[in-house]
Simulated assay, not measured.
Amino acid sequence: MSVSDPLPAPATGRFIAAEHHFPLRVYFEDTDLSGLVYHANYLRYMERARSDMLRIAGIDQRGNLEGGEGVYAVTDLQLQYRRPARLDDDLMVVSRVTKVGAASCSIHQRVMRGEELLTEGDVSVAFLTPQGRPRRQPKPWIDIFSRLMRGEDIRP
């Protein structure tokens, strides 16, 4: 790599059909004393995957937050742990939109090790004003979520 070569960018995952695939690796800091991934870290993995899914789908959360329009907040979360992940495992978080409303969205996520399902969950979010009141999410965002929910491919 020469000095003029661009530095690598962080992984953002990619859409395969209407599902977002986000790769990650389990590091020592992710594990507990038993050597297994600490249960709360699955939530972090899923959050990273959702954030990058929205970003590459064209949803500018930061711009809306800085512009005073609003922000998403988790309103419901259900997780099922099936199998543990361990140090150095290569994982994939697969996310798909399952429901969209005027001020909300639901996303189903699976944490996979190869073909093996480790953890899955359903996350519902609401779009809130900076004061914390529900508000309609931007129409272009509803359109993006609707396309994903119908299984349409989203290419950046």
Rank of each mutant, 00 (worst) to 15 (best):
L79M: 15
Y38C: 05
L65D: 04
M46F: 09
G58L: 09
R135S: 13
T12E: 14
G101N: 08
V123W: 03
A85G: 15
I154H: 12
E152G: 06
D88Q: 13
L24V: 09
E66V: 06
F145Q: 03
Y27F: 15
L79T: 12
M149Y: 00
Q61G: 01
A126N: 00
G63M: 01
Q78S: 14
L7Y: 06
S124I: 04
H108L: 05
L128H: 02
K139L: 06
H21C: 09
H108A: 08
E47P: 02
I56L: 10
P8S: 06
A11V: 14
R50Y: 07
R155N: 14
R96A: 12
H20M: 13
A126E: 00
R82M: 11
E69T: 08
P6N: 02
H108D: 03
G13I: 11
P156H: 03
P156I: 04
R50A: 06
I16G: 07
L87Q: 14
I56W: 02
E120D: 14
A73S: 11
W141C: 03
P8A: 04
R110S: 03
V111L: 06
G67V: 01
V123R: 04
M1V: 10
G35Q: 08
Q131A: 13
F145I: 06
F145G: 00
G114Q: 06
P10H: 03
D143C: 04
F145C: 05
P140K: 10
A102M: 11
D122H: 02
G68N: 12
R44C: 08
L65I: 11
R48N: 07
L43S: 12
R55Q: 11
H39E: 05
D89T: 12
K139Q: 13
V93D: 04
M1K: 12
G58N: 07
G67I: 01
F127E: 00
L128P: 00
N64T: 02
T75E: 11
R133L: 10
L24F: 12
E66P: 01
F22I: 11
D60N: 13
